[in-house]
Computed example of a mutant assay.
Amino acid sequence: MADTSDNLAKLAQKLASEGPHKIEPTPRRVRALFGGKYVLDTTKAYHVWEHPYYPQFYVPVSAITNDANLTKNSSVPSTSDKVHFGTVSVGSKKTERVLVFNTKDLKDLVKIDFAALDQWFEEDVPIYQHPKDPYKRIDILTSTRPVKVELDGVTLAESSNPLFLLETSLRTRYYLPPTSVNWELLSKSDSETYCPYKGRANYYNVTVNGKEYKDFVWYYQYPTAESAQVVGHLCFYNEKVDIWVDGVKEER
């Protein structure tokens, strides 16, 4: 809890002194479940970019439902009473990962840490990890440019029909059919991550020349509808392996 409080305090201090990187209202209906109840429900949420990379949802105080209680607690140090810690509770369940703002840009808005609640929704669609950036898109393109993947001189995969996944502001990722991979070198990992654009990712470790490399490969068994093409395909970290595209080696 101390680490979380420290992080929230630092965020509050930054926003109180500098303001957000960007803020925009969103017409989406935003709801969130906590303890089996909807604790917030609003069509007046904001996308708030705390940093340049992706937004979070901030909601007006009025978004807190009658099933929940919002308590404004002590002022965050070094914010001149512009930001307070808060508590959201439903019955005996509560979270203190809450900030209540009274700054120029964020007046009467509440941030509840995304991971603190059980499930968020945009309209009726569950969202994971963080809200989608409305200015980001994903294109998944079929290609006949061959892709070869190596590590420490050993070929991990080679395909003449890869999928190129292009995501705004990120490097191209290459998703290869499972039949193009050298499975003798892969072992399942227990790791999981979530992407709001692609869904839940599972991982494989790679063992080459007697050395194991953790989580060098990921795949989506049940991707989101917008990324359905990559289902079952494997993607190797460009930054950690050697990749040739149409015979040209990429820089890591």
Rank of each mutant, 00 (worst) to 15 (best):
A2I: 14
S5V: 11
D6N: 13
N7A: 07
Q13R: 13
Q13F: 03
K14E: 01
K14Y: 04
E18C: 10
H21G: 06
P25E: 12
T26N: 06
T26D: 13
R29T: 08
R31L: 02
G36Q: 13
G36E: 13
Y38V: 09
Y38S: 13
D41F: 09
T42A: 00
A45G: 15
Y46I: 00
H47F: 15
H47C: 03
S62H: 02
S62Q: 10
A63C: 01
I64W: 06
D67G: 02
A68V: 10
N69I: 15
L70Y: 05
S74M: 08
S78M: 08
S80C: 13
D81A: 13
V88S: 07
V90P: 09
G91P: 01
S92Q: 12
K93L: 15
K94V: 06
R97C: 10
V98A: 11
L99Y: 00
V100T: 06
F101N: 11
K104V: 12
D105N: 09
K107D: 15
D108V: 00
D108F: 02
A116D: 10
A116C: 10
Q119K: 14
W120E: 06
F121E: 12
F121S: 13
V125I: 13
P126L: 00
Q129D: 13
Q129L: 08
P131I: 00
K132Q: 14
D133Q: 11
P134I: 05
D139H: 07
I140F: 04
T142S: 14
E150K: 12
D152V: 01
D152H: 02
T155D: 03
L156M: 03
L156A: 12
A157N: 02
S159G: 06
L170Y: 11
Y175F: 14
P177C: 04
E184S: 14
E184M: 02
L186Q: 05
S187M: 01
S187D: 09
S189C: 06
S191K: 15
S191R: 15
S191A: 15
E192H: 03
T193H: 06
Y197K: 01
R200T: 14
A201G: 07
N202S: 15
V206P: 03
N209I: 04
K211C: 05
E212P: 00
D215I: 02
F216N: 08
V217Q: 07
V217H: 07
Y222A: 10
A225F: 04
V230C: 07
V230F: 05
G232K: 01
L234M: 09
C235S: 11
V241C: 10
K249S: 08
E250S: 10
E250D: 11
E251F: 08
R252W: 01
